[in-house]
Amino acid sequence: MTHLEQLEAESIHIIREVAAEFENPVMLYSIGKDSSVMLHLAQKAFYPAKPPFPLMHVDTTWKFREMIEFRDRMAQECGFDLLIHTNEEGARQGVSPFTHGSALYTDIMKTEGLKQALDKYKFDAAFGGARRDEEKSRAKERIFSFRTETHRWDPKNQRPELWNIYNAKVKKGESIRAFPLSNWTELDIWQYIYLEQIPIVPLYYSQVRPVVERDGMLIMVDDDRLKLLPGEEVQMKSVRFRTLGCYPLTGAVESEAATLPEIIQEMLLTRTSERQGRLIDHDQAGSMEKKKQEGYF
């Protein structure tokens, strides 16, 4: 078997195991490329049946418009049940990346929103598309990652994971985050998307887009909620995104890569890791580890 065939088989094994062991699993759908691969693998795992769990998107209300369009189209085309949850309290209070800063905003709209949704639907397992190669603290993450009743992750108290046997036992209120893409790298993901022709949000491809330069990043002006600061001006640049999140927090890279091979080529020839485009990781050293402990993915 080739490495992609092996990765695919292992992911399918994990997805089936979760479906079989838990009463009420959900697949978290972030609309990014990893989510697209995860969705594709879920379809493969249960073909010709539909996956026996819904998709859930935690909508911070600050996603790129193209992401939302893509999400709704995919849900319709694949016939998935799509649940959308927003932290209404946060939205009512007008929490935004501009007013509250990236750390607090992420905590309220993303981490809290996710916990609310998990509590509301009483999910006992949630699939996430995180990879171990993304960030140092994730390299030690289990494939079945245990979360307490308050959704906390305790890096010192994780269940050892041997072979491909996963311990799925949880008490009422506790849950498991399952990461079927744990052993994939960014390059594996792109190669697989290329090979399997998996649809992805067009924002990954270069196009001339309106951007402003802010804090050393190129931020796309996706709607009129982005207010220009003194000295800033909107520029039209050929840009694309290596990672997708909330538009005010996601930096674009200047690029001409308009096809998958070109994207892969660009990725291999530049040596900047993908999470750099995300503001939240840079807040403090080891910040991802802190966020994970609090329940962020």
Binding site: M1, T2, H3, L4, Q6, L7, Q191, Y194, L195, P261, E262, I264, Q265
Partner: peptide, 13 residues
Amino acid sequence: IHAYLKAQEEKSM
């Protein structure tokens, strides 16, 4: 890049 990608498909693990 196409030739490269083709070659990558044969990789083992």
